[in-house]
């Protein structure tokens, strides 16, 4: 538990707390990025190089951007004036305190935990690749299927449905056509953006 580890851990926890408690959603998303980057640094401190870089590639490079886009597409980027907490927020805080107390007690009172750090394992990319192709081949294929299903599902869910031509308030037919082309374009844009972030996450994995 070197000093660097403690400092990074404290910074990560502060960023995570900020991500959950700030008013403005974009600030929350950016604090989440700091928390995820701090976690990647913790993985690097624990000699898990591949996982640390994969964390930055997938989480910071794809999931954070996805969250930011979702904030913008749902028009939640302005600082809200109304209450930000649900009505039963106190019960939620109590529950999470109880969960932390339980996990902390379980961690601190276990006697069978190792004391020193064993020598650093040889976690080269070649070893990971060998294991992925021999021992973990089934999870790898299942993950491929899952990512494909998630990609197609996300595009279909986020795609705009066919707007019926009943917009009589518009009046002019040329305007309706233009708005439909606009709808099509924004639908393609939105589904492309969602699928882009998805495939980027998938491409970063494979």
């Amino acid at each position: 538990m070197s000093l660097a580890f403690i400092i990074i851990a404290i910074a990560t926890l502060f960023a995570a707390a900020a991500a959950m408690s700030l008013r403005n959603l974009v600030h929350c998303a950016l604090s989440l990025v700091v928390a995820l980057a701090g976690l990647a640094a913790l993985y690097l401190a624990l000699d898990a190089q591949f996982v640390g870089f994969a964390q930055i590639l997938v989480y910071v490079g794809a999931v954070a951007i996805l969250i930011v886009f979702a904030v913008l597409l749902t028009r939640s980027d302005a600082t809200p004036n109304q209450a930000i907490l649900a009505p039963d927020w106190f019960a939620g805080i109590v529950v999470s305190a109880v969960v932390f107390a339980t996990l902390g007690w379980a961690a601190l009172s276990s006697t069978g935990l190792p004391r020193e750090m064993p020598p650093a394992p040889v976690a080269t990319v070649k070893n990971i690749g060998d294991l992925l192709m021999t021992q973990y081949i089934l999870p790898l294929e299942v993950i491929g299927l899952l990512l494909t299903a998630a990609l197609i599902g996300a595009v279909i869910i986020a795609m705009k449905e066919e707007t019926p031509k009943s917009s009589s308030s518009r009046g002019n037919e040329a305007l309706t056509e233009k708005s439909e082309i606009g709808n099509r374009k924004s639908e393609i844009d939105q589904s492309l953006l969602t699928s882009a972030a998805m495939v980027q996450g998938k491409g970063g994995r494979s």
């Binding site: 851990a9 926890l13 959950m20 929350c28 907490l85 805080i93 969960v99």
Partner: peptide
């Protein structure tokens, strides 16, 4: 190791608190 486990437990509790108390679906 216990230090790492405490950090991850605290992170989990913070995530849980936020997921349960905030009103916005994205949070």
């Amino acid at each position: 190791l216990q230090g790492c486990l405490l950090v991850s437990a605290l992170l989990f509790a913070i995530g849980l608190a936020g997921a349960v108390t905030r009103r916005n679906a994205i949070l």
